[in-house]
Simulated scan of single mutants.
Amino acid sequence: MASSLKLLFALLLLLCSIHGGRGQPCSTSDISVEQSKTGATVEGQAEYEVTVSNTCDCPQSKVMLLCYGLRSVVAVDPRAIKPVDATLCAVAEGRPLFKGTPIKFKYAWKTPQDFPVVSTKIRC
């Protein structure tokens, strides 16, 4: 029985070390937002593709980006990103983002927009 407890304790220590010993294994900095020009133009404006990824092993939901209304001359897929007010946008309708499963969307505007991560809900 004592050896079973020692083994369980060792496994718990191993799990803690895998997550770097932090209380929270993920943060907003684990959400990556990358964008690039597609090379296409829409109504005379450059088209951009944005990829939002979670680089942490734990899912993160309710990902909110600063977007200032998400300006675009074409409709943007609301299942990928949707303004919730004049400054914030929700990614994937608030559903969890899993590592290795990025969310992508395209928009067309005269200049690229910044999409800094404001908040997430870590689900670990």
Rank of each mutant, 00 (worst) to 15 (best):
R95N: 13
P96K: 13
P112S: 07
A80E: 03
R71Y: 04
K106P: 02
R79F: 13
L97D: 00
D77N: 14
D77A: 07
K104R: 11
P112Y: 05
A80N: 04
I103T: 10
A92T: 10
K106E: 06
T87A: 01
P102G: 08
E93W: 08
T111C: 07
G94T: 07
T111P: 01
P112H: 07
T111E: 13
R79K: 15
G94A: 09
K110H: 15
S72T: 08
L70F: 09
P102I: 08
P78E: 15
D114L: 05
C67A: 04
C67Q: 02
F105G: 08
L97C: 02
Q113G: 01
A75V: 09
K82M: 14
V74D: 04
C67P: 03
G69C: 03
V84Q: 08
F98S: 05
F115Y: 01
R71H: 06
K99P: 02
F98Q: 04
Y68V: 08
T101A: 15
T111H: 12
L66K: 01
R79T: 15
P102R: 07
Y68H: 12
P112W: 08
S72K: 07
V84E: 09
L88S: 02
E93F: 11
F98K: 07
F98E: 04
V84A: 08
P83F: 11
F98M: 10
G94P: 06
G100M: 09
D114H: 03
D85M: 12
K82F: 13
W109A: 14
L66P: 00
C67T: 01
A80G: 06
Y68S: 13
G100R: 05
I103Y: 03
F115M: 00
V76Y: 05
E93K: 13
K104G: 00
K82L: 15
A86E: 12
V74E: 10
D85N: 15
V73Y: 11
A108W: 10
R95F: 10
K99G: 03
T87N: 02
G69Q: 02
I81R: 05
R95S: 13
A92Y: 15
V73I: 13
